[in-house]
Nucleic acid binder design. Structure first.
Lengths: 408, 408
DNA sequence: ATTAGTTCGTCAGGAGAGCGAACTAATGTC
DNA sequence: GACATTAGTTCGCTCTCCTGACGAACTAAT
């Protein structure tokens, strides 16, 4: 909460806090009059007026309408100027790269997806730049008008060494200087975060975890991962590796492949390749986890058996997580995880065996866009901090080198 | 951060924030002059003077000395008046009840331990009251001068239902109305918290976890439990059951006793009874875990083998925890856990097999007093919030019904 | 058409808080 | 004894907020 501004406890801090309070209400509840805001926030009417005037000067809010037909003067409604600044969101996946530009309300104003065929990190970075500029173009903006960008990627980003670790699926991605290269290519402030962590944040801001302060998102697809939201904020642990449940010791014997040591333990059982392996062992001639689930949905007994066993594994994983975190809710996602309808019974049957810790489990509501939406949520909170930091230190928007208002 | 006072962003908030800032520095760095404080905090000299004057009026700080022998006027040193208020800390264990009264700096000014021979919760509550009054008496205070008390107990406290759950070791403890009864018996604000959670908090405030924002304390003794500190604060999960790792699915087959279902899974293997069972199975005629560790320390090969296996189980547990939380540090405690010297090699050998997540592991430095010290830390932070809430709402200490200053 | 009532927003006055700069006073140093 | 150094205060100014009064505008009822 404490900003790193020069002035710690000066009167301007009050103004900034109150401005932020008003803005929060406008963001959540939509346009409102000064009188409404005074009632809602508990601030006095003059204070509300002054704060709104200040924000109007810097282009953060604007007159958004009037209400007639009531006793008294015409009521002016203020609203957030969503287009006063824009942020970038990037989702780098194994097969796809997705880039979006969003306004201050978090709505996409431009979006561009592209295949990821990069052979090394240079290719990948320049591909991201292309897509970023295309996405900005869709919104009729130059990419340079983006204040800050958040990039989601598999793996754990080591800030000190400026490199990615645990990201074997992206060629060349584990080299150093990654953040620098992205920053240079995109020309803006860039934050790198694990993709599944961002998906959890997205689910918190816009999806199944909305309004829930403590929950975990468990993703089961090509790999196994988890993102954790604690007290409404992303929890990443001491080195950013929180939620790397692929390394959770598995509760059943692991087939002794070479795989198991490199890819951890739970992962090799519960992730998609484990499902395929189990299906083969059951005599099914199927190549992907998706096919297994389709077969199960059609009633194939062997596939149902495989899915049931998978559900029990997931149930065990969730209980393990719940015994540590006691989340209010667990959101399931990923190529395997999103089949909650087929897995649900097996998961709850496993819960029953493992004691009283039974968090509510629901499927993700955001699907493919979860990571991107999480990146938006994260970038927005950074953008607000940035904007209000400038306001607190008294920088006038017109004179400032950093542009965050529209040019009128 | 946001207090629930009437006045949200009034100028008084600034004063309270700055007073708190000054007080924090005095608590951490000891007595200081106004000029020192101005330099350290970045506040102006007049502001520091005014804030100190205000706090001196309400008895929170006082002149604590002078510095001569330097150019300029005699320097007055201010310090926190530790005795301006007192808090209570209670540790209810299966065998012992410990009660302490501490001053605002967290130092015990009175302490009384007593055996827990209570047959039901009424007995227990009145025993706590006896000990509380005795502890206050030691400090020459009436127990009523205690502002707030924090009670640590095994189990999970369900605030809504006002009852304890998962506390099979304390007879009658799971009945409802527990908080009410404690509040009535002690006559103060009472907070109930799981004992191991408090031990984690104690370790954070005064022990091995000092200054570490993200860590977990794992206790292995009669049972298995964990307390989690996230961002410097206790994390208890959605229903207060975070860290109930006794329900973590065990990675090895569990002997099929009736026990196992009732006491969870990891617990029945890793806790003290599991060690004794393993020792018996190895042909050792020993009755307690302590005897097993003593035998191992003397070089008994069978006991060493049992201890090694136990260390590997603990290592697995820690990796499971680390794969979810990625803590910077894991503190081990409890009758079994504190034998880190004997267990360490086995733990690290297990780490090596289970992947790259290897948190630093250290033994608790607080021992038996950990829970009590955690209760002190928790009660102190509540006391400060309480004191400054009053100050912000403008209550004058002398007129106030709530006394938090000494009566002069 | 007039009047009463309601509501939005501003104005004016007062108080609390913070800061910088000048100032006082005490002490050491040359 | 002159000068530098330092702690703390006083003063003037700015910023912020709040309360209460007020003006303006619009509806609804007579």
């Amino acid at each position: 909460m404490r900003t790193r501004s020069d002035q710690l406890g000066s009167p301007r801090l009050l103004r900034v806090m109150n401005e932020r309070l008003l803005l929060d209400h406008l963001l959540v509840r939509g346009p409102a009059s000064r009188a409404d805001l005074a009632k809602i926030t508990g601030l006095s009417k003059p204070t509300v007026s002054a704060a709104l005037a200040g924000m109007e000067d810097s282009g953060l809010v604007h007159l958004a309408g009037e209400v007639l037909g009531r006793p008294g003067p015409v009521t002016s409604l203020y609203d957030v100027t969503a287009g006063a600044a824009h942020i970038g969101a990037v989702d780098i996946g194994r097969d796809w790269i997705r880039v979006a530009v969003a306004d201050l309300r978090g709505r996409f104003v431009g979006r561009k997806d592209g295949r990821n065929a990069a052979k090394n990190s240079e290719d990948l970075v320049s591909r991201v730049r292309e897509l970023a500029q295309a996405a900005a173009g869709q919104a009729g903006l130059p990419w340079t008008s983006v204040i800050t960008a958040v990039v989601g990627s598999p793996g754990v980003y080591d800030k000190d060494a400026d490199r990615m670790i645990f990201a074997p699926n992206l060629p060349g991605w584990e080299g150093s200087g990654l953040g620098d290269r992205l920053r240079t290519a995109l020309g803006v402030d860039v934050t790198i975060e694990n993709d599944i962590n961002l998906a959890a944040l997205g689910e918190h801001a816009y999806g199944a975890g909305h309004g829930i302060a403590n929950f975990a998102l468990v993703s089961i697809g090509t790999g196994v991962g988890m993102g954790i939201v604690v007290n409404g904020e992303l929890y990443v642990g001491a080195r950013g590796a929180a939620g790397e449940v692929s390394f959770l010791p598995a509760p059943e014997p692991v087939p002794a492949d070479d795989d198991t040591l490199r890819h951890g333990l739970t992962e090799s059982l519960a992730a998609a390749p484990g499902v395929v392996r189990a299906a083969r062992a059951a005599g099914l001639h199927l190549d992907t986890a998706k096919e297994v689930f389709t077969a199960a949905a059609e009633g194939d007994p062997a596939a149902l058996e495989v899915v049931h066993a998978e559900g029990r594994r997931i149930g065990g994983l969730i209980v393990a997580v719940a015994s540590v975190l006691d989340p209010e809710l667990v959101v399931l996602t990923g190529g395997v995880g999103h089949n909650l309808a087929l897995l649900g019974d097996a998961i709850t049957s496993r819960f029953a065996e493992l004691g009283p810790l039974r968090p509510r489990v629901v499927a993700s509501t955001l699907g493919d866009s979860g990571v991107l939406l999480g990146a938006v949520a994260r970038a927005l909170s950074q953008a607000w901090d940035h904007i209000f930091d400038l306001r607190q230190s008294g920088v006038q928007p017109r004179q400032s080198g950093v542009q965050y208002g529209m040019s009128r």
